[in-house]
Design a protein around this nucleic acid. Structure first.
Lengths: 197, 197
DNA sequence: CACATAAGCGGACTGCGGTCCACTTGTGGC
DNA sequence: GCCACAAGTGGACCGCAGTCCGCTTATGTG
């Protein structure tokens, strides 16, 4: 059980290691762009980056870790929009409006990176116990409280986030042919129902 | 793209095939009982049933199919309780009460077969496009309508079902240490909020 | 600059899910 | 009972995720 060397652990990472991380991320993102995330094998990434297969796993732990790393940048930007960006997404607007905007923004964000998210959420167990999700749950919980909602806020936040699941959204869109608009309106309605006092 | 020979397709299944299906299901359920679903390999099942590996796949399509087949009996019983069983779960009680009972029953059902469901829902894509889920969504939608809820019922039903996701429940219980009672109360509260007019 | 050593590397290897296909066998028609 | 043939079988085989471990190299210390 050794710690995975993460990019932001500042206690130094050897220069060659850092270089390989960059090469791998570049190679991976290129391959994902040209064949789609699900058709990219770990070995292909290794080869494209002129690096041994073991190195890929050493740097990113596993396939899911690599996909997450690819999403990292976009995820950060997205998080900033609702944590510290301008209203109505960021602080400043009334809680319910922020909640509405949050869902819509999340839907768009997920739809933009669907295949990467699907790959990054592969394994049932690890879909939930993940920082990105924790951030969203907390955010929703805070807004619910701010909106004066009473009861088991923590659980209610989890329930709301159920609507914003990548695989669900993808299924509703591609299997059931629901439009993005309908999903967005659905979220706003949903929030209205839940926050209604 | 050929049709998978399902147990209930009455247009005959050869005697030996039926026998092998039984042997496989027995072997699989024994192995799952003794080592847990996640430690059962397809090959082990084949060996335990004294059958070739190819036969396992021919009968059940893939690992997910086998797990679903194992769940089939329990799933049917569970479905019957809310489709045609006695109130408040079955028909006869007011819609909102049935909805509350449905969630509680579902939580208990999922908690009872957690590891099997986790295996059976492995792949993101196929978690949603599945008969069992469709039945639940429809049921919830019908009850919502009956309860006089207006708006995009279909979508609202999907949103409610997000709460009843095996992996979510498992995460909340084992990772966040929420008690079964709290989850059940949470459902009832959630339903109350959503159906409140 | 030389050295010690921890960090990194890479590719052979393992295990598993899933496919393939040449061979066997049950079945319904005669 | 026999025959034709669709249905079924099984195990060799494939591709990929992930591990292992002996070798290499960057680094900071004297």
């Amino acid at each position: 059980m050794r710690g995975l060397p993460l990019a932001d652990e500042r206690h130094q990472e050897r220069a060659d290691a850092a270089r390989n991380r960059m090469r791998l991320l570049e190679a991976a993102s290129r391959l994902v762009a040209e064949r789609g995330a699900e058709h990219v094998t770990m070995e292909a990434v290794a080869v494209a980056a002129s690096v041994g297969k073991g190195t890929v796993f050493r740097r990113f732990g596993d396939r899911v870790g690599l996909m997450r790393a690819l999403l990292d940048h976009a995820e950060r930007e997205y998080q900033e929009t609702f944590l510290s960006g301008p209203p109505p997404l960021g602080p400043g607007a009334p809680a319910v409006e922020r909640l509405e905007a949050f869902g819509v923004a999340t839907l768009r964000h997920l739809m933009k990176y669907t295949d990467l998210y699907l790959e990054a959420e592969q394994c049932s167990k690890r879909r939930y116990a993940v920082p990105a999700r924790a951030v969203r749950v907390t955010h929703v919980a805070v807004l619910l409280r701010e909106a004066g909602v009473t009861g088991d806020i923590e659980l209610l936040a989890e329930a709301l986030l159920g609507y914003l699941d990548t695989a669900l959204i993808d299924y509703l869109r591609s299997e059931r042919n629901l439009s993005a608009e309908r999903l967005e309106v659905g979220w706003v309605e949903f929030v209205a129902r839940v926050t209604r006092r």
